[in-house]
Amino acid sequence: MIKTTEKSVFKLPKSLKAGMKFPFCAGCDHGVAIRLVAEVLDEMNLREKTIAVASIGCSVMLYDYLDTDCVEAPHGRALAAATGVKRTNKDKFVLTYQGDGDFASIGLAESLHAALRGEKVSAICINNTTYGMTGGQAGPTTIMGQITKTSPNGRNEEYYGYPIKIAEQVALCDGTAYSARCSLDSIANIKKTKEAIRKTFEVQLQGLGFGFVEILSTCPTNWHLTPQESHERVRNELFQVYPLGVYKEV
């Protein structure tokens, strides 16, 4: 019998805690996004010099998954905390993992000012167009017409105004070195998201400025769709409002 060489083409990333399990709902894209972050940390050999900043929302328990040092920031303040970490520890790798409510609603000032100051940190924002952890209320990224717990008739101009386009706004800041919007709806887009995360990390290491990636994700529970239908919604509805692409790269 000819002995063949076995090769692992996929394994649990070392930057994830051994034995950890994600507590997310079935089909939620958070698990994919966090795994991609861990894979890139592994591939760029950053785990030991990383200080991650967790935010509030479904993203909160980052420290239960990532096997890196991690500090939790109050709601919206992840990039302020990250600024404090990085400015006093220039040799460390600093990343935030936030939801769209944390990044672009309550924390919009902290987020955009970190970008304007060109903080050498990497920020990842999960955009699922709702407040997931609190049960699916309208958020800053809820699209026009979207029905949520607090927009029972759909988001309209009169009561809610318009959604924010985060990657475009971040790209407008002079201190931003990289800003992109990706999606996790397909294998091809998962691969692109991983490359965008890598780029976001690289601009920090090169000292070029603020690195940012917005990741369109699903919330099947609060969207009242199956995981499969949720990805179809991302493609059919969100891509028109939130086009994928790189909005800034220096």
Binding site: P74, A81, T83
Partner: peptide
């Protein structure tokens, strides 16, 4: 708010 959270991070 940002200032105190920068101190928290540091």
């Amino acid at each position: 708010i940002a200032a105190i959270n920068m101190v928290l991070g540091a």
